[in-house]
Design a protein around this nucleic acid. Structure first.
Length: 178
DNA sequence: CATCTAACCTATTCAAGGC
DNA sequence: GCCTTGAATAGGTTAGATG
């Protein structure tokens, strides 16, 4: 009982989607776009998805990972990054592109929400199969289901921090068997 | 086995729409 | 005007492929 890795147990049981293998041609276009615009808006991501024939959600993840890698490299090797890139433009108004072009907010119906919440109570960390089945059931893309679970978990954590005890009653876990 | 990186995670913030 | 909540972000972790 010394080690407490509750999240790890959850993660270990669920199943990931198959790892995407981008071709050289796809990567060429992705990298090229990234160098021009590391924060593409929704329209750009949709266009990219068509152009390289990949799911838009995979493109979004690719940009996230690429930015993280770049900022990490910049932290570890500050001088080399300076030389290779003419970082003239400051990164302050960088959101102006992305925020202008966001994906339209998904409006869930009450019945869709009932299904999501029920599934969440059953398992807050659904694998790819569960997410896709759920997406099909309520008629939204799988990527929206994933984001919904992410937001739901985050808010549950935040709420739990604020009110450590009272939440337990609201959740009404019918049985958390060890 | 070491390295790379897609997939996934939490935490936080932005912003649309309802009250 | 504030609140709820979907969408986007940063930054960290996990795991599949490859030399």
């Amino acid at each position: 009982m010394a080690q407490n890795n509750s999240a790890n147990n959850m993660i270990a049981t669920h199943q990931r989607r198959n790892r995407t293998k981008f071709t050289a041609d796809q990567l060429k276009i992705l990298i090229n776009t990234f160098n021009q615009k590391p924060y593409p808006g929704h329209a750009t991501k949709q266009k990219l998805a068509l152009e390289i024939n990949a799911e838009e959600s995979r493109i979004q993840i690719w940009f996230q990972n690429r930015r993280a890698r770049q900022s990490f490299q910049r932290r570890t090797e500050p001088e080399q990054a300076l030389e290779s890139s003419q970082a003239h433009r400051q990164h302050l108004p960088v959101e102006s592109q992305a925020t202008l072009d966001r994906r339209c907010r998904t409006c869930y119906t009450s019945s869709q929400l009932r299904t999501l919440i029920k599934a969440f109570k059953n398992n807050p960390y659904p694998g790819i199969d569960s997410r896709e089945q759920l997406a099909k059931e309520i008629g939204v893309p799988e990527s929206r289901v994933q984001v919904w679970f992410q937001n739901r978990r985050s808010r549950l954590f935040a709420q739990r921090k604020r009110e450590p005890d009272e939440i337990l009653e609201q959740i009404q876990d019918e049985g958390q068997n060890p």
